[in-house]
């Protein structure tokens, strides 16, 4: 994770969250490591901005006590459905994986400040790794058909582990994969490749999520291209709304608390 000194809070409106007790429509494997869960919430689907998240938990007496933060992977205001993609890590995500379609979940959202694509931006480069990619798919969704070019570099352990490629392609994004398996995901190799790929036509904005190494690399690329960087980060959370102070983005400055990831983020401006 980036140290808080390098994180700036983006300007923007406070989110307008709602909560819903709603049914799981789909809960199935997406790749070997990740699962897709779809639920219905017309309000969340309609209000969600790119890069926002939800707090989600099974509505069972004996289930997890804390809801789990999950990025909004895609949403469809037409059908009122929202998809999240998650990796099974510990007890909370195991409990999510066990939910059958028809099971009830409690969802609060949309939450947090998402990615901001500036009006003058003509080309956006998205750099994501692993499950972090899920925070950026909605950016491509929103930019499809706007004339803003979207390039995506998606990194993962191997090709079939990479999520989101088809979403980005479906939104006419230019997608490049980088995998550990073919040794294209290391920063040195990737940096070279991006120099070659984009030096002639650099993006004005780099958006990144899922890897501290790639965040640092994004900062270097941005300096080279005179671009700006926004990064989506994670923190352990309880409320997701800004009142429990569980999710500080670091240890503060000795007097003041670091920004709260749920309220001031999860997307921050990376200071150069």
């Amino acid at each position: 994770m980036s140290s808080p000194a390098t994180l700036g809070v983006l300007a923007g409106e406070r989110p307008m969250p709602t909560w819903a007790r709603t049914q799981v429509l789909v809960n199935r494997p997406l790749t070997d490591r990740y699962r897709l869960l779809r639920f219905r919430s017309a309000t969340i689907a309609a209000r969600a901005e790119a890069g926002q998240f939800v707090m989600l938990s099974p509505a069972t007496e004996s289930g997890p006590v804390l809801p789990r933060p999950m990025a909004i992977y895609t949403r469809d205001a037409g059908s009122g459905s929202v998809d999240i993609v998650y990796g099974v890590v510990g007890s909370g995500t195991k409990a999510l994986a066990a939910l059958e379609p028809g099971a009830t979940v409690v969802v609060t959202g949309p939450l947090g400040r998402g990615f901001v694509v500036h009006e003058e931006t003509g080309h956006v480069l998205l750099i994501g790794r692993g499950v972090g990619i899920c925070a950026m798919t909605t950016v491509a969704q929103d930019l499809a058909g706007t004339g803003v070019r979207v390039s995506a570099v998606l990194s993962g352990r191997h090709e079939s582990a990479i999520i989101g490629a088809e979403v980005f392609r479906g939104c006419h994004g230019d997608v490049r994969l980088a995998t550990d398996a073919d040794e294209t995901s290391g920063v040195a190799v990737l940096r070279e490749r991006l120099h070659r790929g984009f030096d002639g036509d650099p993006p004005q904005q780099i958006l990144t999520s899922g890897s501290a190494r790639l965040t640092r690399m994004s900062g270097e690329l941005a300096a080279r291209w005179h671009a700006t960087v926004q990064v989506s980060i994670e923190a352990h959370m309880a409320c997701g709304l800004g009142y429990c102070h569980g999710c500080a983005a670091g240890d503060g400055d000795g007097t003041h608390e670091a920004p709260l990831v749920c309220r001031d983020g999860p997307v921050f401006r990376l200071r150069g």
């Binding site: 959370m237 569980g246 983005a249 240890d251 007097t255």
Partner: peptide
């Protein structure tokens, strides 16, 4: 003003949670 504790500040425990906000 005080900054609060080091992160992580929150985790889940069986049937409960643990915080050091």
């Amino acid at each position: 003003a005080r900054p609060g504790n080091a992160t992580h500040r929150i985790t889940e425990v069986p049937n409960g949670m643990l915080n050091s906000v």
